[in-house]
Simulated scan of single mutants.
Amino acid sequence: MNNELIIEIDNLTVDYPTDNEPVRALDRVDLKICQHDFICVLGPSGCGKSTLLNVIAGFTQPSDGTFLMHGQPVAGPDRQRGVVFQSASLYPWMSVRKNVEFGPKIKGLPATEITRIASHYLEQVHLLEVADQPPFQLSGGMKQRVALARALANEPAILLLDEPFGALDALTRIHMQQLVRKIWQQDQNTIFMITHDVDEALSLGTRLLVMSKCPGTIIQEFSVDFCDRAIDEHTGRVHVDADYLALREEILDLIDV
């Protein structure tokens, strides 16, 4: 496995200005992300999980500390970091295919290459049959699959997922988890995912980060391999054993402190 260091965060602090004293969202966060990591971030509401993702995406600038990608400071968003939010945020005036083609088109790729890339990722998310439809005709789960394909079409160095399945029904959520796991395994992607669901994190992640209450910092990291174990074909989830249950309880205790 390629363990190339992609992102290095050191002593990262984020303060949000207010009318009175600044509010500290993140406090001295240290984190390294390597090729093919699947990192799931857990923590109590308001602990700064999304702030950390927004820093990595380039949407939020640190107040202090360093954030390097491939050894270089990050100035803002770019296509090396693809983002999928809880809401699909698709372009409603474009077809499904045109949404997925948008990034490659902006890159100035030849038309044949744009078509090939869009078809490849639409096939990966099982949406080739609706490629010419507008997004408003799709279900919530299908819209999220389009958003995932659109992010992947830029072939980013890291894919950032901000609770992308939180608004989906339970069965669709499981199907989306299966899909993301399969794409990650096949394409050797690097994924950084925010979730409130401990079972989702245990089923998908290779590294689980638990954050403290605000101001958020990483208080515990777990290396896990449940996603490499046998997957139940009917439920799409990992087989639950004593190790899984014990770790689940340990994480829930940390979050509830």
Score class of each variant (00 low, 15 high):
residue 86 Q to V: 07
residue 196 H to F: 13
residue 99 N to R: 15
residue 121 Y to W: 14
residue 104 P to F: 02
residue 253 D to Q: 15
residue 89 S to Q: 15
residue 34 C to V: 13
residue 14 V to Q: 05
residue 13 T to K: 01
residue 66 T to C: 00
residue 186 Q to G: 00
residue 122 L to R: 11
residue 7 I to A: 05
residue 125 V to F: 03
residue 178 Q to F: 11
residue 246 A to E: 09
residue 19 D to P: 01
residue 153 A to N: 04
residue 244 Y to W: 05
residue 174 I to A: 13
residue 49 K to R: 13
residue 180 V to L: 14
residue 238 V to I: 05
residue 30 D to I: 07
residue 21 E to S: 05
residue 246 A to P: 11
residue 93 W to A: 04
residue 54 N to H: 14
residue 172 T to P: 04
residue 93 W to T: 09
residue 95 S to H: 02
residue 194 I to H: 04
residue 186 Q to P: 03
residue 75 A to C: 02
residue 76 G to Y: 09
residue 58 G to M: 08
residue 240 V to C: 01
residue 231 I to K: 11
residue 117 I to H: 07
residue 57 A to H: 01
residue 144 Q to T: 08
residue 109 L to A: 12
residue 257 V to R: 15
residue 252 L to S: 06
residue 247 L to P: 10
residue 57 A to M: 14
residue 212 S to T: 10
residue 19 D to C: 12
residue 122 L to P: 00
residue 44 P to M: 13
residue 35 Q to P: 02
residue 84 V to S: 04
residue 111 A to V: 12
residue 6 I to R: 01
residue 193 M to S: 02
residue 26 L to P: 03
residue 120 H to S: 05
residue 161 L to H: 08
residue 221 E to I: 10
residue 208 L to A: 09
residue 168 L to Q: 06
residue 158 I to G: 01
residue 74 V to F: 07
residue 77 P to F: 13
residue 147 A to K: 11
residue 156 P to D: 00
residue 41 V to N: 03
residue 33 I to M: 13
residue 257 V to C: 13
residue 176 M to A: 07
residue 108 G to R: 04
residue 30 D to K: 12
residue 192 F to C: 02
residue 49 K to H: 14
residue 1 M to K: 12
residue 230 A to N: 08
residue 100 V to Q: 01
residue 85 F to D: 14
residue 109 L to Y: 03
residue 112 T to K: 11
residue 111 A to C: 07
residue 229 R to I: 08
residue 171 L to A: 03
residue 201 A to I: 01
residue 5 L to C: 07
residue 56 I to N: 00
residue 95 S to F: 02
residue 87 S to I: 00
residue 109 L to V: 08
residue 197 D to I: 08
residue 73 P to R: 15
residue 55 V to P: 03
residue 63 S to L: 10
residue 218 I to K: 03
residue 41 V to E: 15
residue 19 D to T: 15
residue 34 C to F: 08
residue 185 Q to F: 06
residue 49 K to E: 02
residue 135 P to G: 08
residue 175 H to W: 10
residue 112 T to E: 15
residue 68 L to W: 06
residue 14 V to L: 10
residue 103 G to Q: 07
residue 228 D to Q: 14
residue 97 R to Y: 04
residue 19 D to Q: 15
residue 104 P to R: 12
residue 96 V to Y: 01
residue 163 E to S: 09
residue 47 C to K: 11
residue 103 G to T: 04
residue 127 L to I: 11
residue 190 T to D: 13
residue 11 N to S: 08
residue 190 T to R: 05
residue 207 R to D: 03
residue 52 L to D: 09
residue 255 I to S: 12
residue 23 V to I: 15
residue 105 K to D: 14
residue 23 V to A: 11
residue 68 L to N: 09
residue 71 G to R: 03
residue 146 V to I: 12
residue 216 G to I: 12
residue 160 L to D: 06
residue 216 G to K: 00
residue 172 T to Q: 12
residue 130 V to W: 13
residue 213 K to Y: 07
residue 138 L to F: 01
